[in-house]
């Protein structure tokens, strides 16, 4: 990892978290605020088709492409888990 990568990764991750919490709030209108600890499927009941829409909207908003090849349910347990995955598996568009 280069010096500039280490500087931008946390920044990108923060943008992903911001974008994801806003989108999830809009899509699912949960009764409690969405945080990094919010569980996507177990707590919000996020379906796979809405998860797909979520990924697409994050891609459009942040102008990135997410590589879904390695994505697994374990990596989308919480908002933080999915933000970690996206940060590590995306390229700028």
């Amino acid at each position: 990892m280069t010096e500039s990568d280490t500087a931008t990764a946390p920044q990108l991750r923060a943008q992903v978290v911001d974008s994801m919490t806003t989108l999830l709030t809009r899509m699912l209108r949960p009764p409690a605020p969405v945080t990094e600890r919010t569980q996507l499927m177990d707590e919000l009941g996020l379906s796979s088709s809405l998860a797909l829409e979520l990924l697409l909207e994050i891609e459009d908003e942040l102008e990135i492409q997410i590589d879904v090849e390695d994505l697994d349910e374990d990596q989308m347990t919480t908002v933080a888990d999915l933000a970690d995955y996206i940060t590590a598996h995306c390229t700028p568009r």
Partner: peptide, 15 residues
């Protein structure tokens, strides 16, 4: 316990 974790009543009841 999985049902109780779901935040919304409609989702919980559907489960």
């Amino acid at each position: 316990s999985r049902a109780a974790t779901l935040a919304q009543a409609a989702t919980r009841d559907r489960f």
